[in-house]
């Protein structure tokens, strides 16, 4: 579904991404982990059309999206849940959700919007309770759910999430990730960027490790979890001998 080859993205003089290649196949959950500044957010923003690449190719469903306007990328079926939620704070929850469905309205699928709204409330009951509240008054976790639900209203084929767990309590993160699983089960493909490497890899099928704008490791989520360097750098050290055989 998504195929990136040798992507190069610059911020001024600095290269945020140097020849990054990765792919996401239909129905997968792929996690991108790495330290701050590694380039993960830049990657997602480039795919979403917010950033113009300096080189390389981004193929989404066979179309080259490098340089396409964001609205076109969303219309093609790729939605980004951005870092920091970015809800429309001065507008109520319901309007946030309806705005997420903009592309659906343009496609003339009003009936689907109704159904999707119901589905959003099913996934995140709290949002229904707060439908009339201004989005800016929601808690961090609720805002994250709103941001996710909003992106899903467009019925995207690929959902990209940028650090959804940031600043959220572990219990909330658990709910959020459960929602991601549900979303995948319902047919979407997910590309997840996370600082919380352990949670991200447990959720994902495959993963990539990004360091200073380059991919240093690729493999199944399990292989990444078992990779010592990953354990040392991102999973809080190596497991003790006693826990060696255990699944982390």
């Amino acid at each position: 579904m998504l195929r990136i080859r040798n992507l190069e993205v610059a911020y001024g003089r600095r290269l945020a991404l140097r020849r990054v290649s990765l792919h996401v196949d239909q129905g997968e959950i792929v996690s991108l982990i790495g330290a701050n500044g590694a380039g993960k957010t830049t990657l997602l923003r480039t795919v979403a059309g917010l950033v113009r690449p300096a080189g390389g190719q981004v193929l989404f469903r066979g179309r080259d999206t490098a340089g396409l306007a964001t609205e076109r990328v969303v219309a093609l079926g790729c939605s980004l849940v951005p870092e920091g939620r970015q809800v429309f704070a001065t507008m109520p929850v319901l309007e946030n959700l309806l705005l997420g469905a903009t592309v659906q309205y343009r496609r003339g699928r009003r009936a689907e919007v109704e159904a999707d709204l119901a589905r959003a409330y099913r996934l995140f009951p709290r949002l229904e309770q707060r439908a009339g509240q201004l989005a800016g008054t929601l808690s961090g976790g609720e805002q994250q759910m709103l941001a996710m639900a909003r992106a899903l209203m467009a019925r995207p084929a690929l959902v990209m999430l940028d650090e959804p767990s940031m600043g959220l309590a572990p219990l909330v993160v658990k709910d959020l990730f459960a929602a991601i699983r549900t979303v995948r089960a319902e047919g979407a493909t997910v590309l997840l960027v996370e600082q919380n490497a352990r949670a991200a890899l447990r959720l994902a099928d495959r993963g990539y490790v990004l360091e200073t704008g380059r991919v240093v490791l690729e493999g199944s989520a399990r292989a990444l979890l078992d990779n010592r360097d990953v354990q040392r750098a991102y999973l809080g050290g190596e497991p003790s001998a006693a826990r060696e055989g255990e699944r982390p």
Binding site: N6, H23, D25, V216, E218
Partner: peptide, 20 residues
Amino acid sequence: EALEQLQLERLEATLTRVYR
């Protein structure tokens, strides 16, 4: 095509790792 993409990704990651 998918295989070549996979090989490219792994080749680049290996080069980066190995150089380092």
